[in-house]
Design a protein around this nucleic acid. Structure first.
Lengths: 220, 220
DNA sequence: TAGATTGTTAATCGATTAACAATC
DNA sequence: TAGATTGTTAATCGATTAACAATC
């Protein structure tokens, strides 16, 4: 049980994976799982799973395993996903629009409660249930909404300025789809999603096909 | 210089970051950079940068630094991005459509050359420059196209089957947007992009705001 | 030459996993 | 009780970074 313990980021990432699997199993009325079941389902080492949980307390029964609904609920609680998390979206282009319609967000207890854009032609338009608002009203709107999470889906050159506006609007965490490093106060957590970087890593492996002794890679 | 050296995946990810920065600098006619400049620009430790390059040879001049166009070209070559990489997209929903229109792909030398969907209502429709094709024609089409990289943007329940079809169609690497673990032969490289997992990690930090001594996290 | 910066080694740091006593 | 599986420790493994000789 913690008390100033540092939780590795990799542990949090895996926790999210465990949660989605457990939510699925709960829906299928599976009662109990063991760490070995998790390993089979995810490829994550069983000891890793137990270690990850150990940062937050004790969850299972020796000889038995873990109660699925209980573990699901406790991990949801740890990730603050036992209640709906409000999310603000900035940038309603192709990608932003796609995120607004992404059903898995809702299923995992995220709700996009507002969408902003800098383009006057877009402001006022409706998309799904939301009316697109002007980026300049961000602080004002979030004073009311109190969202803590934001998604940046604007072109790279605009991303830094948007991030600063979000910081002003009391956003604490940002998921950034623009391929740049955001410079922000340390108390604001950011994570980047960069498709092109992902593709570039894959592209390296394409070369490895031809001559098999070159370009070996250390997966692990 | 290599010859059976294993390259860490993290090194490849950073290489992609270096490449995009160098491409940008090249466009702005910057001649030379040092590893310290890279650290300032990216937050990646200067020694890390030099170590990453060392897997592939020598790139700089002691006392001087690195020639920007030369380094850019050599990293592009390492990642096989000195020529256009053909990419196949499977799943033309909101997300898939957004990816088709994503300008950064083109800029980094990726080209989506075909789009497939299982929905008969979509097959035959045009989107951007492409005519959506039926998933059943995948193997046949790729025999002609010879793409080695594919993107899966279908709903989670369909993703495993699509991945197997891609493997049959001689695809070697897959970028998977469905939140599941793909089970594939080891010679097929996959990378997952999972927005919801990213948001879940951020959501953990939202809780950390209130009581400052709980939920500490180890970033590094 | 003096100053700067590389490439690489060695030290540090952190993450993964095997092993096992505790216990259901 | 015998078998199974946890939580945790200790060992292993890998990644990051400080330090520095080489050299432009």
């Amino acid at each position: 049980m913690p008390g100033g313990n540092k939780v590795p980021v990799h542990t949090l990432e895996r926790l999210a994976t465990y949660l989605s699997i457990l939510t699925d199993m709960k829906g299928r009325h599976i009662e109990t799982i063991s760490s070995t079941d998790i390993e089979e389902r995810t490829g994550i080492n069983a000891a890793q799973f137990r270690k990850d949980l150990s940062y937050f307390g004790e969850f299972g029964k020796p000889g038995i395993g873990y109660n699925v609904p209980d573990l699901q609920a406790r991990i949801a609680r740890i990730l603050n996903l036992d209640r709906t998390q409000k999310v603000i979206l900035v940038g309603v282009g192709n990608l932003g629009s796609a995120l607004l319609g992404y059903p898995a967000l809702r299923a995992e207890n995220f709700e996009i409660v507002a969408a902003f854009d800098a383009n006057p032609a877009k402001v006022g338009r409706k998309i799904w249930d939301l009316t697109i608002m002007d980026i300049s009203s961000l602080t004002e709107e979030n004073a009311r909404l109190q969202a803590k999470i934001a998604i940046i889906a604007v072109p790279a050159p605009a991303a830094q300025e948007v991030a600063e506006r979000l910081a002003d609007a009391k956003i604490r965490t940002i998921l950034n789809f623009a391929p740049i490093v955001l410079r922000l106060p340390r108390d604001i957590q950011t994570r980047n999603v960069d498709f092109v970087q992902e593709l570039a890593v894959l592209s390296f492996h394409v070369g490895a096909q031809k001559s098999d002794n070159e370009n070996e890679v250390d997966n692990s």
